[in-house]
Write a protein that binds this DNA or RNA. Structure first.
Lengths: 211, 211
DNA sequence: GGCAAATGTGAACAGTGTTAACATGTAGCA
DNA sequence: TGCTACATGTTAACACTGTTCACATTTGCC
């Protein structure tokens, strides 16, 4: 980063989030450091403290970006009349997000690196789950989802767990070994859709309403 | 730790693993440090290098212990003739392991802290999954499990993903919010079994073989 | 214009894992 | 037994981390 002309940065807060976001994208948490982010933003190591308090504060903001990006992946899936297709496509999109953004994915679920009490984090962090959870509940025939109904909540939790676990296993390379001859590069397009078909089989056609 | 009488420790390798294991149990990865483990074993900070190379080497050994302990939880579940009961009990045991050993659980899945190329790690780390995976495949009617069959592998992967995701969500406190009025202390005994009943419903009784 | 608050710097601190040179004890071999 | 490797310990140093403190500079408001 070239040295600044002015003593004040102008928009250091945003610049630091951007720098941290890049560092996470490039090398994950491993290569990230607060000092490296400060340096990339062209600022001294002590500067971030004024804006974020501690490194957790900065990483929490990066995590918010990550959750929003995961949301984008899910939003790229458009609802169809087929609930089975919907839930499979959402799961696949989430796994794709994990594989294509490994550093961010790992950050999102590192409770020691983010401030879970941050109200925006609380909100952002369970949006993707809600989106998929609703699709799963719908798949299981719960037309009108009521979070006060135990069955609906259980269905959502189960669906989110499966999605999360699947993304983790695929990202960390623990899914591949189950499939002889599967290639890491083509797993998402070849094996995984078939796995999802098995987890969420096609539903019987809805009974026609009696006239 | 009291200073040693002898210059050599005697069994430093085991003592270090033990010290690290305790530190992980007491405060998780957050409070763990190589120097703290060395101090607890009554030895200088440089000593561990001779036995484990780097901190990863030591933590890998702790992770092996953790996987073995998770295996104990699963082994405490005895097979019954009811596949639904088996798979529910195994899932529940795994979640119980996570909640009762949070530091170890988090370590096990931190790819940056363990040496995944360690052959013993490779072996230990997918044992629990195999145990549950088999139960899930059996639950889905795959009597003779053949890992070369795509359907069996997919069933296992799905089951492991659900179990892993469930343990993560419960441990990190992200499951509770779905259930109004649920208490953290009683979640494992009250809500979770019912959730598992919904994920793995009772099977229809097997058709009697035609004589 | 003046003064408080916001936002930057530089130096220091305690902590980390790792390394190098060296000390000490152990074990095997002539 | 004596000698020699080798294994296993120590000490001091290194580069790195996040954070804090006193201080510099700029901004914005009365």
């Amino acid at each position: 980063m070239s040295p600044r002309a002015t003593y004040h940065h102008g928009d250091l807060r945003a610049a630091l989030i951007d720098a941290a976001d890049q560092l996470i994208a490039e090398g994950g948490i491993e290569t990230f450091s607060l000092r490296a982010a400060a340096q990339r933003a062209g600022v001294s190591p002590a500067a971030p403290a004024h804006h974020f308090g501690s490194v957790k504060g900065l990483l929490t903001q990066v995590a918010l970006l990550a959750y929003a990006r995961a949301g984008d992946y899910l939003d790229s899936v458009h609802d169809t009349p087929d609930p089975a297709h919907n839930v499979r496509a959402l799961s696949l999109a989430f796994v794709r997000f994990a594989v294509e953004n490994p550093g961010h994915f790992r950050l999102m679920f590192r409770g020691d690196l983010v401030d879970r009490d941050d109200p925006r984090y609380r909100e952002f962090s369970h949006r993707p789950g809600l989106r998929l959870g609703r699709a799963v509940a719908t798949y299981h025939g719960h037309r009108h989802i009521d979070m006060n109904r135990f069955e609906d909540a259980a269905e959502m939790l189960g669906g989110i767990a499966a999605m999360h676990g699947l993304a983790y296993l695929v990202l960390e390379g623990k899914a591949l070994r189950f499939f002889k001859g599967a290639q890491a590069e083509s797993f998402l397009t070849d094996e995984l859709p078939r796995v999802l078909e098995q987890i969420y089989p096609a539903l019987p056609p809805p009974a026609l309403p009696v006239l």
